[in-house]
């Protein structure tokens, strides 16, 4: 029974959302709006699960002396930010905003910036002319990179045109084919969930 109720709820809401999409009726529009409102409200509550789990797991690991310093810093951040927001608010010049601008944003930007370094190392390691296909890929990458480098090369104009051609034809064709496959995969997975054929999201029953 504890599996049947979620399946019935899932099917009912799936069916309602599917049908309302095809209707302009005022009742249909208001049902849609109400469900969307509840969707946002439910989402906000799920964050509580995350917070509780984060604290519980970190405390357990701290007590077992696993990665202690990192977890203590993580927990302090988790507690201090909402604490500051509650006491001093989140307006400009508040301690919360100071932390956001001077700690959170630079740290996140730093991790994002790592991407550039990893692109460099991955290019060095991965772009090898091992086969004909790999050589074509390598050639295309070099053309795109050169065309975006603002170099005063003799054939810059043609290079940009070639780069745009690669982007608009071979690259986009492959991308579209992959997108169609993904779209169909998403469609069948969603239908399986709505029709109750797919039950892994309930925690198993493969």
């Amino acid at each position: 029974m504890n599996r049947q109720i979620p399946l019935i709820v899932c099917f009912s809401f799936g069916l309602v959302m599917f049908l309302q999409y095809f209707s302009n009726h005022t009742i249909s529009r208001s049902v849609n709006l109400a469900i969307l409102d509840y969707w946002q409200i439910i989402f906000a509550f799920t964050l509580i699960i995350g917070v509780v789990s984060f604290i519980k797991v970190n405390l357990t690991k701290i007590s077992r002396r696993i990665d202690r310093p990192y977890l203590i810093v993580g927990l302090l951040g988790m507690i201090s930010m909402p604490f500051m927001a509650l006491i001093w608010g989140i307006k400009a010049d508040s301690p919360f905003m100071w932390m956001f601008e001077n700690v959170q944003a630079p740290m996140a930007s730093t991790v994002f910036a790592l991407l550039a370094f990893f692109v460099a190392s991955a290019s060095f390691r991965g772009f090898r002319a091992r086969s004909l296909q790999a050589s074509i890929l390598l050639g295309a990458a070099l053309i795109i990179l050169l065309s975006r480098s603002n170099l005063p090369l003799p054939y810059t104009e043609h290079l940009s045109e070639l780069a745009d051609w690669i982007r608009n034809y071979p690259s986009m064709t492959a991308r579209r084919a992959i997108l169609i496959g993904i779209g169909l995969g998403s469609l069948t997975t969603s239908l399986r969930v709505i029709l109750g054929i797919e039950r892994t999201w309930l925690g198993g029953e493969r």
Binding site: T46, L47, I48, I49, G50, V51, S53, T200, W201, L202, G203, G204, E205
Partner: peptide
């Protein structure tokens, strides 16, 4: 994502 975490816990436990 907290919800993914909950589902994953159930999936793995099962």
């Amino acid at each position: 994502d907290p919800v993914i975490m909950s589902v994953a816990q159930e999936v793995v436990k099962e």
